[in-house]
């Protein structure tokens, strides 16, 4: 665990820049504001999910339910807007309350019943997917005029790029998350919890509150991702976003965060998302490659980054040895 988390972040950033340069050198049109804008728009829901996932993983946990929560959110919004006359903003607020409370409930079970997060959120995953099916098994289109209004909020950049609201929401979420994680006591408590929960408890960290809040944030951001996804697709479908939780975890790990918790940066996750989006864009530009190559490349990248973390950990423990007194404990 002795490693420089900052170095991992820089390597992720360098990887992104390198990938962008390689892509751009083959397809010069990749250096356009259009590509950048689409990168943000297409990955907005995944990016939001990954912010929540970063909180959870930093605290030493995992949240497998987020993909199902997104699908549930889409169906919930589509059905409620079709069946009732309430304003979408009210529906959004209602949904965010439900998913935040759902995340908080999972956090409470994890903390008070001392259950492994993997199992609890796996149950949450099935529960939410099931609830989405109960609401509707078909894809439900959303035709509310407010959705059209949101979709029309576009900032046209020079070069033809169309920056949409949902991309902005994602970027805002990253900025807020950075401030919360690094500039608030709660944020430092998340890192402390991920370092060692027993030690954090002895140091006076409110374990229960922190754990529950972390999963509530995860649930809330998954709900927000669901809203963004429903704006992005103008529909709600219970079979949508299967496996998104795994994409989010991959982005967090590629971003340099340790899966065991306590070390990493939310900025890294942002670049993790961009790298994954960039691979997809490259494959679209190429045109001849199957889209499954995205998965293969991400698999390779993940493997490379895990190896890198191992190497960094190894390098830094070696580096400490001469100055240290733990020399006999090789």
């Amino acid at each position: 665990m002795m490693r420089s988390p900052r170095l991992a972040l820089y390597i992720t950033m360098a990887t992104f820049v390198l990938a962008f340069l390689i892509g751009g050198s083959q397809y010069p049109t990749m250096f356009s504001s259009r590509v950048v804008a689409n990168l943000l728009t297409d990955n907005a829901f995944l990016g939001l999910t990954a912010v929540g996932m970063t909180f959870v993983i930093l605290s030493g946990g995992i949240d497998l339910s987020v993909g199902s929560v997104i699908a549930f959110s889409g169906v919930f919004l589509a059905v409620i807007l079709r069946e009732t006359g309430i304003h979408p903003l009210v529906a959004f607020a209602l949904l965010l309350m439900i998913t935040t409370a759902f995340g908080g409930a999972m956090g409470s079970i994890i903390h008070y019943l001392e259950m492994p997060p993997f199992i609890v959120t796996l149950a949450g995953m099935f529960l939410m997917r099931g609830l989405a099916y109960v609401l509707s098994t078909d894809s439900v289109p959303i035709t509310h005029p407010f959705y059209d209004t949101i979709q029309d909020v576009v900032w046209k950049a020079p070069g033809g790029g169309r920056f949409r609201l949902i991309g902005g929401i994602m970027i805002l979420a990253y900025i807020v998350a950075m401030l919360v994680l690094h500039r608030t006591r709660f944020g430092r408590n998340v890192y402390a919890l991920g370092g060692s929960s027993a030690t954090a408890r002895l140091m006076g960290v409110p374990i229960a509150r922190t754990t529950i809040t972390v999963y509530a944030i995860g649930g809330g951001l998954a709900g927000l991702a669901g809203i963004v996804y429903s704006i992005y697709t103008s529909a709600g479908y219970s079979l949508a976003t299967v496996g998104v939780e795994l994409d989010a975890i991959a982005a967090v790990v590629i971003g340099g965060t340790l899966l065991t918790g306590g070390s990493g940066y939310v900025a890294g996750t942002f670049f993790g998302i961009l790298i994954m989006g960039l691979i997809q864009t490259y494959i679209v530009f190429d045109g001849t490659l199957s889209s499954w190559w995205t998965k293969i490349v991400i698999g390779g990248l993940l493997f490379a980054f895990i190896m890198l973390q191992k190497a960094l950990g190894w390098a830094t423990t070696r580096g400490r040895r001469p100055a240290s007194d733990s020399a006999t404990q090789s």
């Binding site: 608030t184 430092r188 890192y191 402390a192 370092g195 060692s196 140091m203 960290v205 306590g262 070390s263």
Partner: peptide, 23 residues
């Protein structure tokens, strides 16, 4: 103490100085 955090994080965890709502 928490090896994954900085020296000052460890010394000040839970009672960090706050300025305008931020650490």
């Amino acid at each position: 103490l928490l090896e994954n955090m900085s020296v000052s994080d460890n010394l000040f965890l839970g009672w960090q100085p706050v300025k305008r709502g931020m650490l």
